[in-house]
Nucleic acid binder design. Sequence first.
DNA 1: TCTCAAAGGAAAATTATTTTCCAATAAAGG
DNA 2: CCTTTATTGGAAAATAATTTTCCTTTGAGA
Lengths: 133, 133
Amino acid sequence: MIETTELLKEYQLKATPQRIKIVSMVDEHGHISIEDLYKEMLQEFPSVSLATIYKNINQMIESGLIQEVKIPKTKSVFELIKEPHLHMVCDKCGKIEDISVGTDKVIEEAQRLSGYKIKESFITLRGTCPDCA
Amino acid sequence: MIETTELLKEYQLKATPQRIKIVSMVDEHGHISIEDLYKEMLQEFPSVSLATIYKNINQMIESGLIQEVKIPKTKSVFELIKEPHLHMVCDKCGKIEDISVGTDKVIEEAQRLSGYKIKESFITLRGTCPDCA
DNA sequence: TCTCAAAGGAAAATTATTTTCCAATAAAGG
DNA sequence: CCTTTATTGGAAAATAATTTTCCTTTGAGA
């Protein structure tokens, strides 16, 4: 609780109960959609508006606290910004998980071949997870 | 022209003038948004409907002829499905280009660490292109 | 050609997201 | 603690994005 409050303040966002809840949910779930955020939020704040979710998510993105993860054929989800990592999506159950894999060599080679000065990378892999195999 | 027609037939899609135009535009541009597709289409087919664009794009995705490229903070674009490649996005001018970089090692390691049987990969890198540097 | 399943277009319907406006409130200062 | 004030939350409307419906037209095989 206190940690979430502190986190919001670090990012210059007033720590309102709704925001604290949003950040906690993103943190707990790892990845969560607007729709799920809203459904879960309603249990604790029965009068919360979808506009509140959208406004806050957008502010948190602008502040650099969270980011949107866009995956082909699925709804976007949001996650806290953390160490670079990649996303594994299961084509059977839809589960999304993070894994840490060294991508330095790929990025370095891409930079060399393209001449771009690379600042961010978004990597998603889709396949079947061990549970669904 | 004839090539596009053939391509559509290969994918079991009736080769209508509108579809031929859509595929040609996707091919010429490399990456193109719904909005740009519509604007350009209007010049040749003044009465085309956005619904036609959407319906066709969705059918082409289902058929495996094209795919959506989703990039954080930008509109989706569509491209013909071809050899695996990654996308470079310029954070200044917004240009998107393909490059071929070996990603086998990353995918192999991800597969080993996660236990997933990986089937597809989506890799986007953002940075500044040589022209904007 | 003829036939007909499939496609295109107009408009409505749905879904997603943003904006407006005003009452409520977190947080800083006394 | 108790004000003060800029910011936020919520309701509703507005806007944007996408899909569906329904009916007319048409590509492609017989």
